[in-house]
Design a protein around this nucleic acid. Structure first.
Length: 794
RNA sequence: GGGCGAUUAGCUCAGUUGGUUAGAGCAAUUGUUUUACACACAAUAGGCCGGGGGUUCGAAUCCUCCAUCGCCCACCA
């Protein structure tokens, strides 16, 4: 017989069932997620049960949603995050804890700004300067609002049980106040300083980047070996000849016999490469590898992090030969000023060749530093910026940090390391603890100022006028204007000329606020407590901080997780969270990370529309351990849609066979339970125990799989099949026993499955609950083990 | 250069502290009408668990070496 003919016969049967038991029509058709999910979510929202306000319990469980960027849509990475967190939240809520999950979104400064800039340029061929700061920011805000709305709707579609009454935005008024407060406190403690230091500069974004925002890409490069002049004694090598216009030293290993005799000597090179006069000092440095290249390194303090450090140690001058537009400066000599890097490089190489100074030209592989946003190549250059000092010590005033006492002097770096080492914070999976230590150990001061417009403007003002005549300008109007560097470097940044505060200075006309904004991670770093009302001492802050778990992708362990530990460590002298649960990245079929720039992002909303949110959630959880990447697969999602339907049909079976079962009997088992039914119930107890253990150990992937397997291959395939004879038994006791067993297992499974697949379980619950049950499955008690229910045995 | 992970059925992946005949989904083959479910059921086939060596009564699991792939960090100038 073919399917179609078979289906017709089925329809007749279904009508027969309907007539015989008078069951809700709903269960006579296959499960349709589309028809239920939206309604169920509305019911939940209306109930107010996402909020912990009414829960009376001393035990709390709190999570803060890692705020999605308001740059567009939710992607699968967000979906997996929402699935895992909702499982934790629903599980703990069913354990009757005071459970809070705070929603929010991130303004994502540079990402959002560049997205909007691109859009505006595409449509109107205008850049942000054409529009002006005020008009441009209006446009960004509009875009951010639209993005926000889309994201919130999509989040709801996933079934996330977030307390919407507490929603936050990293750039809203409250969070802005938190940011300003944090900045001021850190500034006053000397942890935030302004300095002329080498930074990562993106010439395309026209902004600094933190070390973590720089990525590396392997490329082929030409490696030139040359000497500055014919009478210079040492050959050096470089891939960037144009930066050599700013060299101030040559470093060699102190034990290198070839060069020992030159150490300490100074050489003057007149008009190097037809450009500037160079003064090259020969210095010794342990870190120079005599085996590599010529064993001598030309030191360019202004355009290399390492050279800068060497220059600091040796008091070498810093000559900036490349500017913010990736062009050579006046300091590179009049012949070079204003040239593009490539032109300057060619010119230098040509000179070296002409004058017989070039010894070798080889092709090598090296790593190019690129901007994680726009992929343009990064220029290390010196600039006046704001930094967080990670090594400066400060005194703890009221320490809640394990192992660090009040009164003790610590640095941010020490706090960060201690938090994990002391086990006050546990990272799951633990292999990331090693990665974290390595990062902390190598951490340099964090550059926090960005030359973009969208974000928290730095709450620092600089005096513009001074003196009796009020005419002497001591600061230029904008930090980015020509000449700013000289002013700033000169000494104008003396403490008395800078004001930092949460409110503007009183004599505002003599002050100008810093035009720069803060790194987006500065505000994200405050997220666990800024969302709870800090700096106010709110009840929420007291009740829910530190939060129980911080759940996020391992790719932002440094960007975000570490920064939160830093911020909370200083501002609250406490940890921000007790546990960190890191999930993996969702990859496409080719194993690539999903990203907007690659345009390979799968829309989770499509999957929800096709298979339902429950199916998508299940597919993202089962079999994917913490920290492991996941390849998204349509077939897998489909399989869990079938699972949902299985639950639906099993329910139909149970319902049609328990219509005459008195719901009062659910609470206490019937006096006589058959051996088979008892065995089934005992197995159910085992399952409960197993699942509880997995849930408590954050092994959701195992719990989910066990539940799936039990429901389908134990309950449906074996128990229901076996029960078919007994349920029709003429012995009423036997029938009652079976009915009790079936309904108990079904209801227990619904509870156990609820955190994983909340929609279908709640939908069924709404149709089968009786007077003794709670109104929502969402707040039912998690099935406890039956140890004290031994009376069931006959 | 340093670190981490992966390698299990045709594909995508589980396999918890070592413990019977190694599991799931999809795909494949055969069958099924059976009053919950064809989004199903029953059955079949498919695996030297990357390779070598070791520990053990017992290894996919622990140790060691090697290979391949992937990721993160550092930057040799």
């Amino acid at each position: 017989m073919d399917f179609e003919a078979y289906k017709e016969i089925k329809m007749v049967n279904i009508i027969k069932i309907k007539i015989s038991v008078g069951m809700n029509d709903k269960f006579l058709k296959p499960y349709e997620p589309k028809e239920t999910e939206e309604n169920i979510y509305k019911l939940w929202e209306k109930s107010g049960l996402f909020s912990p306000n009414k829960t009376k319990s001393d035990e709390t469980f709190s999570i803060i949603l890692p705020p999605p960027n308001v740059t567009g849509n939710l992607h699968t990475g967000h979906a997996i995050m929402l699935a895992i967190e909702d499982i934790m939240v629903r599980y703990n809520r069913m354990l009757s804890k005071k459970t809070l999950w705070v929603p929010g979104t991130d303004h994502a400064a540079i990402a959002t700004q560049s997205k909007v800039e691109k859009e505006i340029y595409k449509k109107e061929k205008k850049n942000r300067h054409d529009l002006g700061r005020e008009e441009f920011l209006k446009r960004v805000q509009k875009f951010a609002e639209e993005s926000h709305d889309t994201i919130i709707n999509q989040t709801k579609k996933m079934g996330a049980s977030l307390d919407w009454s507490r929603e936050a935005f990293t750039l809203d008024e409250k969070r802005n106040f938190a940011v300003k407060t944090a900045f001021k406190k850190m500034y006053d403690a000397g942890l935030i300083y302004r300095g002329y230091r080498i930074v990562n500069w993106c010439p395309k974004c026209q902004s600094t980047l933190s070390d973590d925002e720089v990525e590396h890409e392997e490329q082929k490069a030409k490696f030139y070996t040359f000497k500055y002049s014919s009478d210079f004694p040492i050959y050096i090598s470089t891939t960037r000849p144009e930066t050599k216009l700013g060299d101030t030293a040559v470093a060699v290993n102190p034990n290198d016999e070839r060069y020992k005799k030159y150490i300490g000597k100074e050489f003057e090179i007149k008009k190097f490469a037809d450009g500037p006069d160079l003064k090259i000092k020969i210095i010794a440095d342990e870190n120079i590898d005599p085996e590599f290249g010529t064993g001598a390194v030309g030191i360019t303090p202004a355009h290399s992090h390492i050279d800068y450090e060497i220059a600091q140690k040796n008091n070498l001058p810093i000559i900036k030969v490349i500017d913010e537009h990736a062009k050579t400066t006046n300091e590179a000599g009049t012949e070079y000023a204003g040239l593009k890097i490539k032109e300057a490089r060619e010119k230098v190489v040509e000179y070296l060749k002409k004058n017989g100074l070039l010894e070798k030209e080889e092709e090598i592989k090296n790593n190019l530093s690129i901007c994680y946003r726009c992929n343009s190549s990064i220029e290390p250059l010196p600039s006046q910026q704001w930094f967080v000092d990670v090594n400066k010590k400060f005194k703890l005033k009221n320490s809640k940090l394990k192992g660090l006492k009040t009164g003790q002097e610590v640095s941010l770096k020490e706090i960060m390391k201690n938090a994990v080492e002391s086990k006050q914070i546990e990272i799951i999976p633990d292999r990331f603890e090693k990665v974290y230590y390595h990062w902390v150990d190598n951490l340099r001061d964090w550059c926090i100022s960005r030359q973009i417009w969208y974000g928290h403007q730095i709450p620092a003002w600089r005096r513009t006028q001074i003196g009796a005549d009020n005419k002497t300008q001591i600061h230029p109007v904008k930090s980015s204007e020509a000449g700013a560097e000289q002013f700033n470097r000169a000494s104008a940044d003396k403490k008395e000329n800078i004001y930092v505060g949460t409110n503007p200075p009183k004599d505002i006309e003599n002050w100008l606020q810093d035009q720069d904004t803060l790194d987006t991670w500065f505000s994200s770093g405050l997220w666990t407590f800024s969302t709870l009302g800090w700096p106010e001492e709110t009840p929420d802050l007291k009740t829910f901080h530190p939060i129980s778990v911080l759940e996020t992708g391992y790719d932002i362990l440094f960007f975000w997780v570490a920064r939160m530990i830093l911020m909370s460590g200083f501002l609250l002298e406490d940890i921000p969270f007790k546990k960190v649960y890191l999930h993996g990245l969702v990859r496409d079929e080719k194993g690539r990370k999903m990203s907007k720039s690659l345009d390979n992002a799968v829309d989770p909303i499509d999957a929800i529309n096709k298979y339902g949110a429950d199916a998508l959630r299940m597919a993202m959880i089962v079999g994917v351990g913490p920290g492991n990447d996941l390849v998204i697969n349509d077939e897998k999602i489909k399989a869990y849609k079938h699972f949902a339907n299985k639950i639906w049909n099993a329910t139909r079976f149970v319902l049609s066979n328990t219509q005459d079962f008195d719901s009062h009997l659910e609470a206490e088992p019937p006096s006589e339970i058959s051996d088979f039914d008892k065995k089934c119930l005992d197995e159910l107890d085992e399952l409960k125990k197993d699942v509880k253990k997995d849930m408590d150990n954050f092994k959701f992937y195992l719990a989910g799989e066990k539940l799936y397997h039990y429901f389908w291959h134990k309950f449906a395939d074996i128990i229901i099949e076996e029960s078919k004879n007994n349920i029709k038994s003429s012995n009423p006791k036997e029938k009652l026993s079976t009915q009790y067993m079936l309904i108990t297992i079904l209801k227990t499974c619904l509870k156990l499955l609820h955190p994983f697949i909340p929609f279908i379980t709640e939908e069924i619950w709404q149709n089968i609950k009786n007077k003794n049950d709670k109104e929502f499955l969402m707040i039912e008690n998690w099935p406890a083990n039956q140890e004290n229910k031994k009376t069931r045995k006959q």
